[in-house]
C-alpha cells in the first residue's frame, strides 16, 4: 500500500492553471503559478493563494478555553476575534466556547494538539476540512464589494476582529492580518465549497488584472 497524499480541496480547480505543485504538510498543493516577480506584482494588485494545507486544530465545549490555556495557549478574549501566538500561529475564537488554531508551516502547535488525547468532559475536538485562502492587493475592497453583502472596509476587520459572513453565497470566516509585512485577508470555508469559491473569486480577480499566486509566495520553505 502506498502512503496516501492528500490533495488540497481546491486542487482540481488549480490544475487548469498548470501550477508547479508539491507536498507541504502531507498535502499536495500549488507552490507557484508563475515567475516570482509576476506573482509579486499580482499580490500588489489583487491575488488569491490556496493555503488549505496549513495545519489546523478545532476544539469546542465549555472547558475548551481552560484546556487550551493549560496547554499554554494565549486566547482571544471575546467571540469573533483572534490573536497570534509568539510563534506566529493564529488562534481564532469562533464562539464563546469554540476555537480554531492554524499553524504556519514551520510550527507544530496544531499538529501537537491534534495528536493529544482529550480525557476530560467539556472538551470536544472538531474535525476541520477547510479550504483556506489568502487574498491580497490594493483592489481587494473592489473584490469584496462584489461578493460580500457587508462592508469589510474600515472597522469591521480592524484590531484582530474576525467576521463570519457569506462570500459569493458561501459561509466563510474572514480576518485581516499582516504577513511578511503585507496586509492580507484570510478566508476559510468548508472544503467542499473550496473549488467553487476559488473559481468565483479568481474570475473577478482576473477581470481586475490580478491572478493566482502559489503557496511559496507567502511561505517560502527554502
Amino acid at each position: 500500500m502506498q502512503d496516501a497524499v492528500l490533495m488540497s480541496p481546491v486542487a482540481f480547480a488549480h490544475a487548469l492553471r498548470k501550477p508547479v505543485s508539491g507536498e507541504v504538510n502531507g498535502m499536495e498543493t500549488a507552490l507557484s503559478f508563475d515567475a516570482a516577480d509576476v506573482e509579486a506584482s499580482r499580490s500588489k494588485t489583487l491575488s488569491i493563494c490556496d493555503v488549505s494545507n496549513l495545519n489546523r486544530f478545532g476544539v469546542k465545549g465549555p472547558q475548551a478555553a481552560n484546556w487550551l490555556q493549560t496547554a499554554g495557549i494565549k486566547l482571544p478574549e471575546t467571540t469573533n476575534s483572534w490573536t497570534p501566538q509568539d510563534n506566529g500561529s493564529l488562534v481564532m475564537r469562533l464562539g464563546n466556547t469554540e476555537f480554531l488554531l492554524e499553524d504556519r508551516p514551520e510550527n507544530d502547535l496544531a499538529r501537537m494538539l491534534n495528536d493529544t488525547a482529550v480525557n476530560e468532559g467539556g472538551v470536544h475536538k472538531v474535525m476541520r476540512n477547510d479550504a483556506a485562502f489568502i487574498v491580497s492587493g490594493e483592489l481587494t475592497p473592489a473584490l469584496f464589494s462584489e461578493v460580500c453583502a457587508i462592508d469589510l472596509d474600515g472597522a469591521t476587520l480592524a484590531e484582530n476582529r474576525l467576521v463570519m459572513t457569506v462570500i459569493a453565497g458561501v459561509s466563510a470566516t474572514l480576518l485581516k492580518q499582516t504577513l511578511n509585512g503585507q496586509s492580507v485577508y484570510r478566508i476559510w470555508c468548508d472544503g467542499t465549497f473550496g473549488p467553487y469559491l476559488w473559481k468565483t473569486l479568481l474570475s473577478i480577480i482576473e477581470e481586475q488584472g490580478g491572478g493566482p499566486v502559489g503557496f511559496n509566495f507567502y511561505y517560502s520553505l527554502t
Binding site: 464562539g95 457587508i150 467576521v163 459572513t165
Partner: peptide
C-alpha cells in the same frame, strides 16, 4: 445578537 446586523440572506 452575536454577529450584528446582516442581510437576511445569511
Amino acid at each position: 445578537p452575536i454577529n450584528g446586523i446582516r442581510p437576511l440572506s445569511e
